[in-house]
Design a protein around this nucleic acid. Sequence first.
DNA 1: CCATGATTGATTGTTGACAATCGATCACCG
DNA 2: CGGTGATCGATTGTCAACAATCAATCATGG
Lengths: 233, 233
Amino acid sequence: MTPTIARVPKATFRAQIVDGLRSAILGGELAPGAQVTESSLAEQFGVSRGPLREAMRQLIDEGLLVTVPYTGTHVVDLSVDDIREIYSMRVNLEIFAFELVWNRRDDAFRAGLHGRHAALTRCIDNQDDVASIEAELQLHGFVYEAAGHRILFRTWESIRGRLQLYWAAHHRAHGLRGPRRDGHDSYVANALGDDLEQMRAEIRSHMARGGQQTEAFLRGLAGPGAAAPSPTP
Amino acid sequence: MTPTIARVPKATFRAQIVDGLRSAILGGELAPGAQVTESSLAEQFGVSRGPLREAMRQLIDEGLLVTVPYTGTHVVDLSVDDIREIYSMRVNLEIFAFELVWNRRDDAFRAGLHGRHAALTRCIDNQDDVASIEAELQLHGFVYEAAGHRILFRTWESIRGRLQLYWAAHHRAHGLRGPRRDGHDSYVANALGDDLEQMRAEIRSHMARGGQQTEAFLRGLAGPGAAAPSPTP
DNA sequence: CCATGATTGATTGTTGACAATCGATCACCG
DNA sequence: CGGTGATCGATTGTCAACAATCAATCATGG
């Protein structure tokens, strides 16, 4: 799959900082709502403010940071509406991905899907929450990649971070989430089946399940009032 | 719709440069494939390389510039596959937008759609190509905005620039595009009609028409061989 | 007591200079 | 003549200092 000779990883500072900072946010070292200042981060990472600034701007673009000019930058604090949007968007993106890949599902695809499903199952059996989150992202990401549609994949990437952030926060608050495995057994079964329409339904119910958990969880945290039924731009 | 007191526009340099640079690319002053260096642009805009760098990075994110580290940055040169992806993505995004807005279509929505349709028709009658491109983007953008889904709207924004870049290049090479008006008459009619499924079909055919023109045009420019039937990531 | 305006500390925005890297060119040698 | 390594110009990457802006605080006057 990958070329035998890998390109030497000449990581620019910005790229390294993006990875490190994202890990810190997703890992919970930087809590949602926490303020992050360029100076302090620059010192922690041991670099100047220049490259760090650009890294922060990328994370702002990914929706993990929010900034207001001349004032400050904070780790994003996801609202109920945010999660609702993420899940409703995922329904459309993932159905599109399966439409693209459906008639091109080959042995490599089936093997890749089975492998990632097995990995996810293992992580759940071991009750390794952090690993199962990563494994679930790998499973879904594999589908997006197999679709072979760069814009679609990029769009998935643009929401993946926030999805992971929510999952991580959920896990730290509630521990292991029970329904995860069952959901994916039927998910994978349908993904390798013969009925595309049934797969569409599977995705809708899969996301609806996640969405319900989400709303209950976030309502419990933030209390009512933060959610507007019809968000106006 | 908008608050009576608008926020005073204290544009940071980066924001201004983003707008100016994007206009230069979409306006054709910077041709596709042309190299853009930070130094020369910084001089032209009369600012330092810092903010200009960040502006360039945003346009890289929008897909209007491509860069390779330590080497150079160029205006993107869209391939047949790129356009194909943009149009197939638009089908899904726009159908999603109409699903969201369908049961919330009110007088403001109908008026907004009619107004933008009329504006587009006027531009076409005046054979003002640049204005019709802008008007068509306004028409579609209005739908995305009315959907009230921030992630969806942001995704639309992430492909809008490249779509406009293609349209502008097409216009400069081929002049006014005939089918544009008819397509939008039936588009608006269905958008205000009662049959959501028919609107889905309308969007699919609308995009298919644009996509066909596209492929013929780009094939003529670049010659065959650049297009791979099944793109692999 | 409330409203108003100045002050201040913190944070981001901007700048110019310096360093690292790349691609092409060219001399050199077998 | 072919290939190999050094050189060079161009471009991006990085840095540390300076400027602009903001939000909160506090004094001031009614």
